Computed example of a mutant assay.
Amino acid sequence: MTTMPTLFIPHGGGPCFFMDPDGGPADPMWLPMQAYLAGLIDSLLERPKAILLVSGHWEEADVTVHVGSGQPLFYDYGGFPEHTYRLRWDAPDAPEVAMRAKALLEGAGHAVGEERARGWDHGVFIPMMVAVPGADIPLAQLSLRKDLDPAAHIAIGRALAPLRDEGVLIVGSGMSFHNLRARGPQVTPVADEWDAALVDAVTDPDPARRAERVAAWDTLPHAHFAHPREEHLLPLMVALGAGGEGAAVADYRDHVLGWAVSGFRFG
Protein backbone atom coordinates (compact mmCIF):
# COMPACT_ATOMS: atom_id res chain seq x y z
CA MET A 1 0.00 0.00 0.00
CA THR A 2 1.26 3.48 -0.94
CA THR A 3 2.08 5.90 1.87
CA MET A 4 -0.37 8.75 1.55
CA PRO A 5 0.81 12.35 1.52
CA THR A 6 -0.86 14.87 3.79
CA LEU A 7 -2.57 18.00 2.53
CA PHE A 8 -3.42 21.50 3.65
CA ILE A 9 -6.18 22.78 1.40
CA PRO A 10 -8.08 26.06 1.10
CA HIS A 11 -11.81 25.54 1.56
CA GLY A 12 -12.95 28.82 0.09
CA GLY A 13 -15.51 31.21 1.51
CA GLY A 14 -18.81 29.76 2.70
CA PRO A 15 -20.49 27.79 -0.12
CA CYS A 16 -18.53 29.76 -2.74
CA PHE A 17 -18.40 26.98 -5.35
CA PHE A 18 -22.17 26.34 -5.21
CA MET A 19 -23.85 29.74 -5.34
CA ASP A 20 -25.85 29.07 -8.51
CA PRO A 21 -29.14 27.32 -7.59
CA ASP A 22 -29.16 25.72 -11.03
CA GLY A 23 -25.73 24.17 -10.54
CA GLY A 24 -23.90 26.53 -12.85
CA PRO A 25 -20.24 27.48 -12.50
CA ALA A 26 -18.84 29.38 -9.57
CA ASP A 27 -17.84 33.01 -9.71
CA PRO A 28 -14.72 33.06 -11.94
CA MET A 29 -12.63 34.21 -8.96
CA TRP A 30 -13.11 30.78 -7.34
CA LEU A 31 -12.58 28.62 -10.43
CA PRO A 32 -8.80 28.00 -9.99
CA MET A 33 -9.34 26.89 -6.38
CA GLN A 34 -12.24 24.71 -7.47
CA ALA A 35 -10.07 23.11 -10.17
CA TYR A 36 -7.30 22.44 -7.63
CA LEU A 37 -9.72 20.74 -5.26
CA ALA A 38 -11.32 18.77 -8.08
CA GLY A 39 -7.94 17.30 -9.01
CA LEU A 40 -6.79 16.28 -5.53
CA ILE A 41 -7.82 12.62 -5.53
CA ASP A 42 -6.56 11.99 -9.07
CA SER A 43 -3.22 13.53 -8.06
CA LEU A 44 -2.63 10.72 -5.55
CA LEU A 45 -0.79 7.53 -6.47
CA GLU A 46 -3.58 5.49 -4.91
CA ARG A 47 -7.16 6.28 -3.99
CA PRO A 48 -7.45 6.59 -0.19
CA LYS A 49 -9.59 4.12 1.71
CA ALA A 50 -10.68 6.96 4.02
CA ILE A 51 -10.04 10.62 4.83
CA LEU A 52 -9.25 12.10 8.24
CA LEU A 53 -10.02 15.81 8.00
CA VAL A 54 -9.19 18.62 10.43
CA SER A 55 -11.33 21.71 9.81
CA GLY A 56 -10.67 25.25 10.97
CA HIS A 57 -14.35 25.37 11.96
CA TRP A 58 -14.31 22.91 14.87
CA GLU A 59 -12.55 23.54 18.17
CA GLU A 60 -12.78 21.66 21.48
CA ALA A 61 -10.87 21.93 24.76
CA ASP A 62 -9.19 18.60 23.95
CA VAL A 63 -8.59 17.30 20.46
CA THR A 64 -11.78 15.38 19.65
CA VAL A 65 -12.70 12.65 17.18
CA HIS A 66 -16.11 12.52 15.52
CA VAL A 67 -17.25 8.93 15.86
CA GLY A 68 -20.85 9.30 14.67
CA SER A 69 -22.43 10.16 11.36
CA GLY A 70 -21.60 13.45 9.70
CA GLN A 71 -25.23 13.78 8.61
CA PRO A 72 -27.16 16.02 8.63
CA LEU A 73 -24.56 18.54 7.60
CA PHE A 74 -23.77 21.54 9.78
CA TYR A 75 -24.40 24.67 7.68
CA ASP A 76 -22.21 26.93 9.79
CA TYR A 77 -22.34 29.98 7.52
CA GLY A 78 -24.79 32.83 7.28
CA GLY A 79 -26.23 35.23 4.73
CA PHE A 80 -26.02 32.97 1.68
CA PRO A 81 -28.78 31.93 -0.74
CA GLU A 82 -31.42 29.57 0.60
CA HIS A 83 -30.43 26.67 -1.62
CA THR A 84 -26.95 26.57 -0.06
CA TYR A 85 -28.57 25.32 3.17
CA ARG A 86 -29.79 22.27 1.29
CA LEU A 87 -26.45 21.18 -0.17
CA ARG A 88 -25.67 17.49 0.28
CA TRP A 89 -22.52 15.41 0.64
CA ASP A 90 -23.63 11.98 1.78
CA ALA A 91 -20.31 10.20 2.23
CA PRO A 92 -20.14 7.40 4.80
CA ASP A 93 -18.52 8.12 8.13
CA ALA A 94 -15.36 6.27 9.20
CA PRO A 95 -15.67 5.54 12.94
CA GLU A 96 -12.92 2.93 12.81
CA VAL A 97 -10.51 5.57 11.48
CA ALA A 98 -11.65 7.97 14.20
CA MET A 99 -11.01 5.39 16.90
CA ARG A 100 -7.64 4.47 15.41
CA ALA A 101 -6.75 8.18 15.44
CA LYS A 102 -7.87 8.39 19.06
CA ALA A 103 -5.69 5.43 20.02
CA LEU A 104 -2.66 6.95 18.29
CA LEU A 105 -3.19 10.31 19.97
CA GLU A 106 -3.71 8.81 23.41
CA GLY A 107 -0.62 6.67 22.91
CA ALA A 108 1.33 9.88 22.33
CA GLY A 109 0.01 11.40 25.55
CA HIS A 110 -2.80 13.59 24.21
CA ALA A 111 -6.18 13.84 25.96
CA VAL A 112 -8.84 12.96 23.36
CA GLY A 113 -12.58 13.48 23.38
CA GLU A 114 -15.33 11.78 21.37
CA GLU A 115 -18.29 13.43 19.66
CA ARG A 116 -21.24 11.76 17.91
CA ALA A 117 -23.93 14.29 17.06
CA ARG A 118 -22.22 17.18 15.28
CA GLY A 119 -22.68 17.28 11.53
CA TRP A 120 -19.74 17.93 9.24
CA ASP A 121 -19.15 21.69 8.99
CA HIS A 122 -18.54 23.58 5.78
CA GLY A 123 -14.79 23.20 6.19
CA VAL A 124 -15.53 19.55 5.43
CA PHE A 125 -18.42 19.33 3.03
CA ILE A 126 -17.73 22.32 0.78
CA PRO A 127 -14.23 21.25 -0.34
CA MET A 128 -15.19 17.56 -0.30
CA MET A 129 -18.18 18.18 -2.58
CA VAL A 130 -15.59 19.36 -5.11
CA ALA A 131 -12.81 16.86 -4.35
CA VAL A 132 -15.01 13.77 -3.92
CA PRO A 133 -18.24 14.58 -5.79
CA GLY A 134 -19.35 10.96 -5.67
CA ALA A 135 -19.22 11.06 -1.85
CA ASP A 136 -17.71 7.58 -2.02
CA ILE A 137 -14.72 7.88 0.34
CA PRO A 138 -15.49 7.45 4.05
CA LEU A 139 -14.52 10.41 6.21
CA ALA A 140 -13.81 11.07 9.88
CA GLN A 141 -13.42 14.57 11.29
CA LEU A 142 -10.96 15.67 13.95
CA SER A 143 -11.22 18.92 15.91
CA LEU A 144 -8.65 21.53 16.68
CA ARG A 145 -7.73 22.28 20.27
CA LYS A 146 -9.19 25.57 21.47
CA ASP A 147 -5.81 26.75 22.74
CA LEU A 148 -4.62 26.82 19.10
CA ASP A 149 -1.11 25.96 20.26
CA PRO A 150 0.88 25.50 17.03
CA ALA A 151 3.53 23.17 18.45
CA ALA A 152 0.82 21.01 20.05
CA HIS A 153 -0.99 20.71 16.72
CA ILE A 154 2.24 19.73 14.97
CA ALA A 155 2.66 17.05 17.65
CA ILE A 156 -0.93 15.91 17.07
CA GLY A 157 -0.09 15.50 13.40
CA ARG A 158 3.05 13.50 14.20
CA ALA A 159 1.02 11.11 16.33
CA LEU A 160 -1.39 10.55 13.43
CA ALA A 161 1.33 9.83 10.85
CA PRO A 162 0.95 5.98 10.96
CA LEU A 163 -2.48 6.40 9.36
CA ARG A 164 -0.70 7.37 6.14
CA ASP A 165 0.54 3.77 5.78
CA GLU A 166 -3.00 2.49 6.38
CA GLY A 167 -4.59 4.13 3.36
CA VAL A 168 -5.87 7.21 5.18
CA LEU A 169 -5.47 10.64 3.61
CA ILE A 170 -4.94 13.30 6.31
CA VAL A 171 -6.31 16.68 5.23
CA GLY A 172 -6.09 20.04 6.97
CA SER A 173 -8.88 22.31 5.71
CA GLY A 174 -8.53 26.05 6.29
CA MET A 175 -7.17 29.14 4.54
CA SER A 176 -3.59 30.36 4.44
CA PHE A 177 -4.92 33.94 4.65
CA HIS A 178 -8.09 34.64 6.61
CA ASN A 179 -8.88 38.24 7.50
CA LEU A 180 -12.53 38.81 6.65
CA ARG A 181 -12.26 42.55 7.32
CA ALA A 182 -9.53 43.08 4.74
CA ARG A 183 -10.54 42.57 1.13
CA GLY A 184 -9.74 44.07 -2.24
CA PRO A 185 -6.67 44.92 -4.30
CA GLN A 186 -5.24 47.18 -1.60
CA VAL A 187 -4.71 44.08 0.55
CA THR A 188 -2.77 42.15 -2.09
CA PRO A 189 0.77 43.54 -1.56
CA VAL A 190 0.62 42.75 2.16
CA ALA A 191 -1.00 39.37 1.53
CA ASP A 192 1.69 38.54 -1.02
CA GLU A 193 4.46 39.35 1.45
CA TRP A 194 2.85 37.19 4.14
CA ASP A 195 2.29 34.36 1.69
CA ALA A 196 5.89 34.40 0.44
CA ALA A 197 7.17 34.17 4.02
CA LEU A 198 4.73 31.39 4.90
CA VAL A 199 5.61 29.37 1.79
CA ASP A 200 9.31 29.77 2.53
CA ALA A 201 8.82 28.45 6.07
CA VAL A 202 6.50 25.60 5.12
CA THR A 203 8.73 24.37 2.30
CA ASP A 204 11.98 24.55 4.27
CA PRO A 205 13.86 21.40 3.19
CA ASP A 206 14.98 20.65 6.74
CA PRO A 207 11.97 19.03 8.50
CA ALA A 208 12.99 20.06 12.03
CA ARG A 209 13.64 23.65 11.01
CA ARG A 210 10.41 23.65 8.99
CA ALA A 211 8.40 22.69 12.06
CA GLU A 212 10.14 25.32 14.20
CA ARG A 213 9.54 28.07 11.66
CA VAL A 214 5.90 27.22 11.08
CA ALA A 215 5.23 26.89 14.81
CA ALA A 216 6.58 30.46 15.04
CA TRP A 217 4.15 31.63 12.34
CA ASP A 218 3.29 34.76 14.31
CA THR A 219 6.83 36.09 13.83
CA LEU A 220 6.41 36.16 10.04
CA PRO A 221 5.67 39.48 8.30
CA HIS A 222 2.04 40.61 8.68
CA ALA A 223 1.13 37.43 10.57
CA HIS A 224 -1.68 38.88 12.66
CA PHE A 225 -3.00 40.87 9.73
CA ALA A 226 -3.26 37.64 7.73
CA HIS A 227 -4.79 35.82 10.71
CA PRO A 228 -6.39 38.04 13.36
CA ARG A 229 -7.31 34.68 14.89
CA GLU A 230 -5.38 31.66 13.66
CA GLU A 231 -7.97 28.87 13.60
CA HIS A 232 -7.85 28.71 9.79
CA LEU A 233 -4.07 28.26 9.87
CA LEU A 234 -3.89 25.55 12.55
CA PRO A 235 -5.00 22.68 10.25
CA LEU A 236 -1.73 23.36 8.42
CA MET A 237 0.16 22.44 11.59
CA VAL A 238 -1.54 19.05 11.77
CA ALA A 239 -0.86 18.30 8.10
CA LEU A 240 2.78 19.35 8.49
CA GLY A 241 3.28 17.21 11.58
CA ALA A 242 1.73 14.18 9.94
CA GLY A 243 3.85 14.73 6.84
CA GLY A 244 6.96 13.60 8.69
CA GLU A 245 10.41 13.89 7.15
CA GLY A 246 9.26 14.00 3.55
CA ALA A 247 9.28 16.88 1.12
CA ALA A 248 6.96 19.85 1.53
CA VAL A 249 5.69 21.67 -1.54
CA ALA A 250 3.29 24.49 -2.25
CA ASP A 251 1.04 22.89 -4.86
CA TYR A 252 -1.55 25.67 -5.18
CA ARG A 253 -1.42 29.45 -5.21
CA ASP A 254 -3.94 32.00 -6.40
CA HIS A 255 -5.64 35.23 -5.39
CA VAL A 256 -9.21 35.55 -4.10
CA LEU A 257 -10.78 38.62 -2.49
CA GLY A 258 -7.39 40.30 -2.90
CA TRP A 259 -5.77 37.59 -0.75
CA ALA A 260 -2.87 35.38 -1.77
CA VAL A 261 -3.96 31.84 -0.92
CA SER A 262 -1.74 28.74 -0.94
CA GLY A 263 -2.18 25.00 -0.51
CA PHE A 264 0.51 22.54 0.60
CA ARG A 265 1.42 18.86 0.26
CA PHE A 266 3.69 16.92 2.59
CA GLY A 267 5.37 13.54 2.22
Rank of each mutant, 00 (worst) to 15 (best):
P207R: 03
A103F: 10
P92R: 03
E46I: 08
W120S: 15
A242G: 09
M128K: 13
A135P: 03
R229L: 15
E245L: 09
S69M: 10
P138T: 04
R88P: 03
A260Q: 07
L44D: 09
D20S: 13
S262I: 00
L53H: 05
A101D: 02
G24R: 15
M19A: 05
H232P: 01
T188F: 07
G39Q: 03
D121M: 11
D93Q: 05
Y252A: 00
R253V: 02
P32L: 01
V261G: 09
G68K: 15
K102Q: 13
A50W: 08
G119K: 13
I51F: 05
T188A: 02
P21I: 09
Q141L: 09
I137N: 12
D204Y: 10
A242Y: 14
H222Q: 00
V124Q: 04
E60W: 08
A98V: 00
P25M: 08
G267N: 11
V124H: 03
L160N: 12
A161M: 12
F8E: 05
D121H: 11
S69N: 07
G119I: 14
A182N: 06
P127F: 14
P32N: 02
L163N: 06
L163P: 14
R118W: 01
I51Y: 03
Q71I: 12
I170T: 00
V112S: 10
F125C: 00
G78Y: 08
V214Q: 06
A35S: 06
N179K: 12
I154D: 06
H255N: 14
T64F: 15
Y75F: 01
G107C: 03
I41K: 10
E114P: 04
A223I: 03
G14A: 05
D121G: 02
G172I: 00
R253W: 10
E115P: 01
A247C: 07
T219E: 15
Y252I: 02
R210L: 04
A108L: 13
